[in-house]
Design a protein around this nucleic acid. Structure first.
Lengths: 208, 208
DNA sequence: ATAGAAAGTGAGTGCTTGCTATCTAACTGT
DNA sequence: ACAGTTAGATAGCAAGCACTCACTTTCTAT
């Protein structure tokens, strides 16, 4: 038999169930939505008892806020990874936009959006989410500037980012199909390509 | 004294409380969100008893679906009214976009969006909302075509509409400020203007 | 005028929710 | 080894939920 198959320090046990709870919350939010993400559902998904949940999170909202911060960092990373590639031609921009659409439909982003919507009707949640929101936005701006600052004035960069991100978010909100890997659909595909054309032609490439 | 201050036919009474309930549902959804729009809350807002609600709507979901259809027509009308004006220069397009932003932040649109989000996690609601969704989209396309068909190919029109509508929806989702009449904010203002410039320069005006 | 139907009331039903109290199991410092 | 602390499990509670039912009020047809 194995020597000590289950000998963990307290800190390890603690962190283990906490991340299990956070991941379970992400899955619940992404699959069932905010209202159906009850403490019981999360515990069942995580495979722990309700007592364990309320030991680490004093209230349901605390769990949700912690989950928000949990996914916010992941979202920034996904954005960076997707946007960090050579972007010159229309084709390049179109590819990036299509990839970004996939990112925006991922569970982490879905979770974040679900919490944002809930925050509209809940002042406390809104206040708790505010710092993460600000940080997310500024980090995305930095990531975009890393690659495009030589091509666009700073103000325009923020504006373009607003157009792109908000359009993709709007798309995600109205994409009721639960399958995130579904193909874009004719109109959406054309819309993304058109947006790429508009951006590139409005900010033509510097001649080297 | 007045002759018959409260002598209404049954049909009038019926219709009266039904529209009271629908309007109350709109207000609840726009102000408190989907989860907090309980039958009790709606009845309190409408000033009727719960029995009255369940006489006319067999279930909470039926009330919500009816409310969705109720606001869908209003949304189309608002869109038509806003879009139906001379649109030639960048300035014209920017003005229309700014007005559209206001429309999208209105209670009727807020309600519609709240129901769409809820539908993502509720297959029945999703199915019930599907026809209204299709009709809304096609009617908006027709309204846009009425004014722009001479300037854009049909495919491009749908794409532009997708960009504009989805961006405004995304904006509305992340506009946590409960005041719908709040000023657009620097970045948003610039984004809308930039989008207007892009559209107009990509589809230059026909010379008369 | 009156029987009958429709509209509206409000107390009640069973169920789910977020959360707590009580207890046992697992780890830690000495 | 063992007292003390932390982690986790379980049963249960008050509140709120969607919905029902026996009942009164309001209109309608004869």
């Amino acid at each position: 038999m194995t020597t000590t198959p289950s000998r963990r320090t307290q800190a390890e046990r603690r962190e283990g169930t906490i991340t299990a709870l956070l991941d379970a919350t992400v899955r619940c939010l992404a699959e069932r939505g905010y209202a159906a993400t009850s403490t019981a559902a999360v515990c069942a998904e995580a495979g722990v008892s309700q007592g364990a949940l309320f030991r680490h999170f004093p209230t349901r909202q605390a769990l949700l806020v912690a989950t928000a911060k949990h996914v916010a960092t992941r979202n920034v990373a996904q954005f960076r990874a997707t946007v960090a590639q050579g972007v010159d031609t229309v084709e390049d921009v179109a590819v990036v936009l299509t990839h970004l659409r996939g990112v925006v439909l991922s569970p982490a982003n879905q979770t974040w959006r679900e919490l944002l919507v809930a925050a509209r009707a809940d002042a406390d949640l809104r206040a708790a989410l505010h710092p993460a929101r600000e940080s997310l936005q500024s980090q995305m701006l930095v990531a975009a500037a890393d690659l495009w600052a030589d091509r666009l004035p700073a103000d325009d960069l923020a504006a373009v980012l607003s157009i792109v991100v908000n359009m993709l978010d709007g798309l995600a909100f109205s994409a009721l199909d639960p399958d995130p890997a579904a193909p874009p659909g004719r109109t959406v595909e054309r819309a993304l390509r058109l947006l790429a054309e508009m951006i590139v032609s409005h900010y033509p490439q510097e001649q080297p």
